[in-house]
């Protein structure tokens, strides 16, 4: 009986572990898609309405889903609080907080960090170029992330459970 409970625990633990890994693969393309959509909204706000960043980013935060909305809300909040905080500082600060908590990889965060260096500092035309460039880069990253997700999500789900099963059988 005790053995059975132990075996079930091992199975559950490894199953959950596999599910965790697969979920992070599944979340990455979703977050990237949200970022791409967010940058498109931001570009519209900037090029057509020349809305200042605190308002524009606040607007973006309302239009995209969580968790990406949290990032934009934080940047908007920091900028809105004024006192000489540049868009770059606020963007990077929010990214530092958001990055480790997201499913994004280092390369994805690198693209966003690069965008942070140019956000808000030039005219509309130039801003549009930077936003589009980042958008294109994120699209490529998303295609790769989707590929990886397609391969890995199911695999890790099964791996977790089957791996657990192997351990249980070996120990039984």
């Amino acid at each position: 009986m005790l053995k059975l409970i132990g075996g079930l625990l091992v199975l559950a633990a490894s199953g959950l572990g596999g599910w965790q890994v697969s979920r992070s693969y599944a979340r990455r393309p979703v977050e990237l898609r949200q970022f791409i959509a967010a940058l498109q909204v931001l570009e519209t706000e900037i090029t057509y309405a020349a809305t200042p960043l605190p308002e524009a980013l606040g607007g973006v935060a309302e239009q995209v889903g969580v968790p990406v909305a949290f990032f934009f809300r934080q940047v908007a909040g920091d900028l809105g609080a004024h006192r000489g905080c540049s868009a770059r500082e606020a963007w990077h600060k929010a990214l530092d907080y958001y990055g480790p908590r997201s499913a994004l990889g280092a390369s994805d965060l690198g693209i966003l960090r690069g965008l942070g260096n140019s956000i808000g500092i030039s005219d509309r035309e130039d801003q549009s170029k930077h936003l589009r460039l980042a958008g294109e880069q994120l699209k490529i990253a998303m295609a790769m992330a989707e590929d990886a997700a397609g391969k890995n999500v199911k695999m890790w789900n099964y791996m977790g459970l089957l791996g657990g099963l192997v351990i249980v059988l070996a120990l039984y």
Binding site: I46, A50, T51, P52, L53, P54, E55, A56, L79, G80, H82, R83, G84, C85, S86, A87, A90, G120, I121, S122, D123, R124, D126, Q127
Partner: peptide, 14 residues
Amino acid sequence: LHNISGSSMYALEE
């Protein structure tokens, strides 16, 4: 300038 423009130089074009 950051404070005036809300860190958005593009908003000050005009």
